[in-house]
């Protein structure tokens, strides 16, 4: 039995090496050697999908990345789309969710019942439903609040809903951080004559947020990825913009796959940048003991 183990190990190791090598070989062949990089539709079609057509990125990439997906018509205001819209939705809803999240976290920890229970109900309620249904709310229900006048544009309603969605998850992370700060810290601050707001803002929150920095990073990455869901209600951010610009294009619509891979790479790079920023902050900001 003991003598067989190294043999099994070697075979498994060899099989793994073969598999990785084969996948790499196939991928390089398709994505590099047989690929067409110029925006030459005829050359791309001649490949018959045996090689990647990165020409679709050369032809359309700047539209997706600069957000020139929707043709501007005279008289119509400029509509954000593509990557700028993704960044705007993500940045705005992340920023807007902070005040709400801190308020919800403090309310949930409060000993006052009229603060505690509404916060619990709100957080668990929003966490219990899919983002898509919240976005439907933005698309179909929020306009009903303006029966006479004009409701804010879908873009702003979507931003509001994403902020609330982000805030409830953020609130739970902040609450987890608050639990790590010992009670003596706020008692000491109180003894020194600091008021409740100063104690929370200067003593408790900085320590709490530092403790949950890794969770804050993955929350931001999740929000960036979830911003793609606004496509379902007809906003053309990076994912939706790609679909819009290819669905009506008889030449390039055959190369959706390459376009998806490129946009996936853009998302991956943005997420990696956020992860890196998080690790940088962790190193720069020493953790309290």
């Amino acid at each position: 039995m003991k003598a067989v183990a190294p043999l099994v190990k070697a075979v498994s190791s060899g099989l793994g090496l073969l598999l990785v090598g084969w996948l790499l070989w196939q991928w390089l062949g398709w994505a590099v050697w047989r690929a067409e990089f110029r925006a030459d539709a005829a050359a791309c079609q001649a490949l018959q999908h045996q090689g990647a057509c990165w020409g679709v990125v050369a032809a359309k990439g700047s539209q997706w990345l600069l957000g020139r997906v929707i043709e501007s018509t005279p008289g119509q205001p400029w509509q954000p789309a593509g990557l700028p819209l993704t960044l705007m939705l993500f940045g705005l809803s992340w920023l807007l969710s902070w005040p709400l999240a801190i308020g919800l976290a403090l309310a949930r920890r409060s000993s006052r019942r009229w603060l505690h229970w509404p916060a619990v109900a709100f957080i668990e309620g929003v966490r219990g439903v899919p983002v898509v249904t919240l976005l439907f709310m933005a698309a179909f229900l929020l306009p009903l609040l303006w029966p006479q006048g004009e409701a804010p544009a879908l873009l702003w309603r979507a931003t509001a809903v994403l902020s609330v969605f982000s805030a409830v998850y953020l609130a739970e992370i902040v609450r987890g951080g608050l639990q790590t700060v010992p009670k003596e810290q706020s008692e000491a601050a109180h003894t020194l004559g600091l008021g409740w707001w100063a104690t929370q803002g200067r003593i408790v929150l900085p320590q709490a947020l530092r403790a949950v920095l890794p969770a804050l990073t993955s929350h931001a990455i999740g929000l960036l990825k979830d911003s793609s869901l606004v496509m379902v209600i007809g906003l053309h951010e990076l994912t939706g913009g790609l679909s819009l610009s290819l669905s009506g294009d008889p030449v390039w619509r055959a190369f959706y796959f390459e376009a998806y891979l490129f946009v996936g790479l853009v998302y991956a790079l943005m997420c990696l940048a956020l992860a890196r920023l998080g690790r940088h902050l962790e190193a720069r900001w020493p953790q309290a003991l």
Binding site: S13, G16, L19, S228
Partner: peptide, 23 residues
Amino acid sequence: SSRSWRLLSSGIVDTVRLVPLLL
């Protein structure tokens, strides 16, 4: 314990987690 399996699995896990589910 084999490096190729580790490489393959972490490649899959990391790539999948960085790309939106919708995409």
